[in-house]
Each structure stands twice: as C-alpha cells, then as structure tokens.
Amino acid sequence: MFIVEDLTFKYPKNKENTIKGITFEIRKGEIFGLLGPSGVGKSTTQKILTKLLDNYQGKVLYNNKDLKSYGKEFYEEIGVGFEMPVHFSKLTAYENLNFFKMLYKSHSDIDMLLKMVGLYEDKDKKVGEFSKGMKARLNFVRALINNPKILFLDEPTNGLDPKNARIVKDMIKDFKNSGGTVILTTHLMNDVDELCDKVAFMADGKIAEIDTPKNLKLKYGQRKLDIEYIQSNELIKRVFSLDNLGKNEEFINIIKHNEIVTIHSRETTLDDIFIKITGVEKNE
C-alpha cells in the first residue's frame, strides 16, 4: 500500500530535520506499528502519509503511484482516528456521525458500528455528556464511516476499560481480515504484541529497528529457560540454555522426577525492547 524511500522532512522554523531519511514498506492487509517516544517523528510521518504535509523530500508511493499526485479522492480511501477525539459536543453522537458521513461518497452502516462498540443506546445523547471512553469509541466509529481501505489509528484503546478495549481490538482484527490495512501508533505494547504484523521503532527521526514482534523478541531476548521445582520439600530454581535442551539429561531428569512449579523462557517484552531501542531512559 505504501512504499517510503529516504523520506526527509523539516518544519520551516526548525533548524534540524524532524524526519531524517526513513525507508519502509506497508503491505496490503498488514497491521503496521509505528512506535517510539514522543517527539521522534511518528506524528509527522503519519501527517505525510495522510497528505496533511507535502513539502517533504524522498519518495512516497501509495498503490505504486506518487502520493503527491493524488487529489481529494485519496481521502475516500483512508480513515483516521486521532488520539484526541474531535467531536461537536453540542450535537448527539448520531448527528456527529451523519455530519462527517456527508463528506464521503462511500458510507458504512452507522447503526451497526454503534451497536458493535456499545454506543447505540446513547446515539441520541449529546457528545458533551459522553465519558472519555465513550468519546474514544465514537472516534473509532468515525474512522470507519467511509468504508476505508486504510486505517490510521493513534492510541485507539486509550481511555478504554478492558472490555471495550477488547471490542475495539477485535474490530481492528476484523478490518484486517476483510483486506484492510492499518497503521497503528500506540504506547501500549500489549496492543502492539497482539495486533501488529510488523513494527518500526523510531528514534531521533530515524527508524532504529523494523521487524515482526516475534523476531524482535527473539533477537533481544535471552535463549534461556527458568524452572522452579520441588525437591525434598524445597523449592529449587534453575536456569538452562534453550540450545539442545531436549538432550540435556539433567533438565530431562528434573522434568521426569520432580513437581514443576513454574517454567518459562526468558523471552523479552516489547516494553523492554522499546526502552532499549529508543533510549527512552536516557531522555528521561
């Protein structure tokens, strides 16, 4: 869907480039995570991909065609959910959605979307009376009202309780399974781990790492296994290498002859990888 090559961008009043020559691809039907601490260029990259900024250097192709060559028809194909919901607070949820619906040629079933996110019963309530979580869900629905091919989502589950966060994540998965493409920005690494096919970690205007979550965890993790077991009424803790573990007689004997309490590999988390790659601790 997108091919980005050597993308560079500088805001007019800045001395340094905000984007410093980044290259990546986003494939059709992929959930692509664009990650990193605040101020590294994620939002600027999204603004370029959504045609809000066009005075960039480098190449950006959308469906193998220069992004700059597209006109308003481009917006028919994308849905955008900003982190800070923008609604008309004195209008009802239904009135809000119908207003934005008129901006597009293609339309989704608003009633169905509202039912899916649990807002149908509140459709005639003024948005100013909505809670933060309700506004976030309405914001997500608005991103889907034009049957987009691509979703740009910024912190889509922020402010949601676990039940409603699950509903939104399942809807994102359904969108992908129906052929849609998602560009996701979030600081919630559990969402990234669950949803993303590929992630790009940004640091200081550059892409520091790009790969699948699994490959990154294998790369930055330790190939070791921790095991706790009961032996002679004592809790014993041991560490084994994962290499040739099936031929390790000591490990096999422990498994055979003792009560196992816990056993797990030392697979690192995306939170740990985030900190290591982006240098967040140094910035703090």
Rank of each mutant, 00 (worst) to 15 (best):
E83Y: 04
A203N: 14
G118P: 06
L144P: 11
P213N: 08
Q46N: 13
D109L: 01
K149A: 06
M134Y: 00
K68N: 14
K101Q: 13
N146A: 07
K176M: 07
L7W: 02
V80W: 01
L195W: 02
Q46F: 03
E267W: 02
E30H: 10
K125R: 13
F274Y: 10
L242D: 04
L216S: 09
K105H: 10
E249F: 00
E76G: 12
M84W: 06
N233D: 13
I48H: 08
A165I: 03
T212C: 03
I210V: 14
I26T: 10
R223F: 03
M102R: 15
T92K: 01
T18L: 01
I210M: 10
A200L: 01
F2Y: 15
M102A: 15
N63P: 09
V4W: 02
E121V: 12
E281G: 06
G21D: 05
L235K: 14
Y75N: 10
Q231D: 12
L35F: 02
M1C: 11
K51D: 09
V192W: 01
N283R: 09
E77L: 02
E155I: 01
T268I: 09
L184E: 06
G279H: 00
S89A: 12
I31Y: 05
F240D: 06
K169F: 00
E129H: 12
E25M: 06
D193G: 10
G33Y: 00
L188Q: 15
Q46M: 14
V192S: 05
D154H: 05
I252Q: 14
L270P: 12
S232G: 07
H264C: 08
A143V: 07
V280K: 13
K59Q: 14
A143R: 02
Y104A: 05
T186F: 04
D6V: 08
L216Y: 01
Y75M: 07
D197P: 05
K135P: 09
T18H: 05
V127G: 06
L151P: 09
K13H: 14
T8V: 12
F140G: 12
